[in-house]
């Protein structure tokens, strides 16, 4: 689908040739770690809620960046995994099972299983066809959820209480929940970093640069892509687990295709193929939404053109833009 020159240009804007700033993730995670303390000092408790929201979406966005930025697999169905994870929590809770030791593994397993089954079909297609078929499977789960009449159907279902951890209701406390989500994000980030640095990651990046060549060297390209897809799906399930617990509510809207679109926007906005960018992107997106919606009801009228400007003038997303600014000014 993509011509050779375009592929090289895209690669240049992506990860492989961009010098990675090792201090950036440290700064990002330090800010997240200190945020509740800052919120408590300035008595702005809503910051913890906002921070939780950012972290929940950042988990899914980091996984999506693993697919998009390193595997060249543009999935338009990432929200489906969030939804599956969330519904796993909701349905288990409705059945009286409200412990994270059960529901978190189930959320991950369900998402991974769905990713495995659909991935076998998706991976056969390339480029835009891949985008569309992942969208199709996402839509199927979405409509399936709307028909789950025993679990609220269109309206969704309320969860009685947040999950306990081995019977200990620690997550009831918003700050404790924030740090739990923070640990999930940290684990996700470290896992993805390790994957990318491993042999698996190098092969995956190779398939993005030139799948034919990787196949010629002797790698089963589709197997590597499928594994990446399943891993990203499982992490999406974690994000869904966190989302369901933080809002104590599950609805089909979590997996509407617009949600998948927003996740892609977050990844590209921050800078695709950096992992850090996915976190920065979710933070900027959700903060901009909160700030602009305070200014005007139709905040998208400002945010839409901003996205266009980012694409036109800040290649490589916000991280790429800042890196170039730094280069220019020494």
């Amino acid at each position: 689908m993509m011509t050779g020159a375009a592929a090289i240009a895209a690669g240049g804007a992506g990860s492989a040739r961009q010098p990675r700033n090792a201090a950036l993730p440290a700064v990002i995670f330090a800010i997240f770690a200190l945020m509740p303390a800052f919120a408590a000092l300035t008595a702005q408790h809503y910051l913890v809620d906002t921070g939780t929201r950012i972290i929940v979406y950042a988990v899914a966005a980091v996984a999506l960046d693993l697919l998009v930025g390193y595997g060249g697999l543009i999935s338009f169905g990432q929200a489906a995994f969030i939804g599956l994870g969330a519904y796993a929590v909701g349905i288990l809770s409705a059945a009286g099972i409200g412990d994270a030791l059960v529901s978190l593994p189930v959320a991950i397993a369900v998402s991974m299983a769905f990713a495995w089954i659909t991935g076998v079909v998706c991976i056969r297609t390339k480029g835009v066809y891949f985008i569309m078929i992942t969208l199709a499977f996402g839509q199927m789960v979405y409509f399936l959820a709307t028909s789950l009449a025993p679990y609220g159907g269109d309206n969704g279902l309320t969860i009685d209480a947040r999950n306990t951890i081995a019977g200990w209701p620690v997550l009831k406390n918003d700050t404790a929940f924030y740090y739990f989500a923070f640990l999930c994000l940290l684990a996700t980030y470290l896992l993805c970093r390790a994957l990318i640095a491993s042999r698996f990651g190098r092969v995956l990046r190779g398939t993005k640069e030139n799948a034919t060549r990787m196949a010629a060297i002797g790698f089963t390209v589709q197997r590597f892509q499928l594994i990446a897809y399943v891993i990203a799906g499982g992490i999406g399930g974690v994000s869904g687990f966190l989302l369901a617990n933080s809002t104590e509510f599950v609805a089909p809207a979590y997996m509407a295709w617009q949600q998948s679109g927003e996740l892609i926007v977050m990844v590209i906005l921050g800078g695709v193929g950096t992992l850090d960018g996915a976190i920065v992107g979710s933070a900027v997106y959700l903060l901009a939404e909160e700030w602009l919606s305070g200014l005007t009801e139709n905040w998208q009228v400002i945010f839409g053109p901003f996205l266009v400007l980012v694409v036109l003038f800040a290649r490589g997303g916000l991280i790429g833009f800042c890196a170039r600014l730094r280069l220019r000014h020494g």
Binding site: M1, I264, I268, V272, N298, Q300, G304, V308
Partner: peptide, 23 residues
């Protein structure tokens, strides 16, 4: 954007959707 990545096209046109829907 013709010479750009599909991803850039997706995000820019997504921005236009947001803008026009609310304009």
């Amino acid at each position: 954007l013709y010479e750009r990545d599909h991803l850039d096209q997706v995000i820019a046109t997504f921005g236009i959707i947001l803008f026009l829907n609310h304009a």
